[in-house]
Nucleic acid binder design. Structure first.
Lengths: 164, 164
DNA sequence: GTAGAGAATGAGACTCGTTCTCAAGGGTGT
DNA sequence: ACACCCTTGAGAACGAGTCTCATTCTCTAC
């Protein structure tokens, strides 16, 4: 999947194409000739859950929280919305490497994560990443066109540490 | 899962506890009072597939290759063996962050990976990792006990690049 | 040699996360 | 008004991985 979508905001009806013509904005990338992606109420709800979550919810957690706002929403819609938001650059998908469900992050600026091996919580790392410096060298030596990277540090969080 | 096992080598019978008493060695960690883990023929076959693979096979690929040597082996045994070998430090489990199956690596020395977004191939990175330098600082600022890290760079391999 | 304990196996059912399919609903442009 | 197309929700389907269980085998003690 390499397609990106534009996002256009809409209202809050029930089933079907959930647009009502009230307000409209693009939050995805623009002017690339690609099909616009509507920010339907369902998608907006998913996006708001992501942006207000201070942890990194799984799709199932997003689904639960979205249902508080939109009880009738289906799981497929949540998964679809998450995928579209990630494509639109409005969310990040994290695979925290512990074999569990993917987690999502409303903080789309480049940052790394520190994951607790025991409880699974993930915290953002605010330090500047040291990886940048090796990208050019690596691109040259491997022939890869490097588009990004994921750095996850693992360990035990303060409350899971033996002495804490 | 934090248990580690010792591994003791065995022979190559059929079903059941596949030991025959011919030869025996430990390749896991030792002298820790934990239960020894036998290197049964099935487990040895899994280990050999990992060590001879130049790519990073998925569990399903390992299963396929092991069946060439041991046609009767079951999927559960392969999954169990992979998990045990990872615990014993004889293999690494990679989650390459593309939502696909876990991959395994017989090269157990610490190294990073460069993953092609299109074809999924992963190559080892031989450069010294720049992440070490931030570990201490991060442990101090977050309170985590940092035990390791995973760095995966993403991009397009030479044959998947637009111009190649 | 024999019995008992314990470990490992293979088959298949099962769980879980995710994607796919499809009919229905609703907005949009003409 | 109408046709077209997008989006939705429900549920089936899928794939990866785990669990259960009867069976088979080794090891140890007697």
């Amino acid at each position: 999947m390499t397609k990106r979508h534009k996002i256009i905001a809409d209202g809050w009806p029930g089933r079907g194409a959930s647009t009502n013509g009230i307000g409209r904005d693009n939050i995805g990338c623009d002017m690339d000739g690609q099909q616009a992606l509507r920010l339907t109420p369902q998608r907006r709800a998913v996006l708001e859950v992501l942006q207000t979550a201070h942890n990194h919810p799984t799709a199932a957690e997003v689904y639960d929280r979205v249902r508080e706002v939109a009880p009738g929403i289906g799981a497929a819609t949540v998964y679809r919305s998450l995928g579209l938001l990630v494509q639109a650059g409005q969310a990040l998908e994290l695979s925290l490497g512990n074999g569990t469900a993917a987690r999502y992050d409303g903080n789309t600026s480049r940052h790394d994560h520190l994951v607790c091996d025991r409880c699974g919580q993930a915290v953002d790392i605010d330090l500047p990443s040291p990886v940048e410096m090796m990208v050019d060298e690596l691109a040259h030596s491997t022939g890869f066109a490097i588009t990004g990277y994921d750095l996850q540090l693992r360990g035990l969080c303060p409350s899971c540490r033996p002495g804490g």
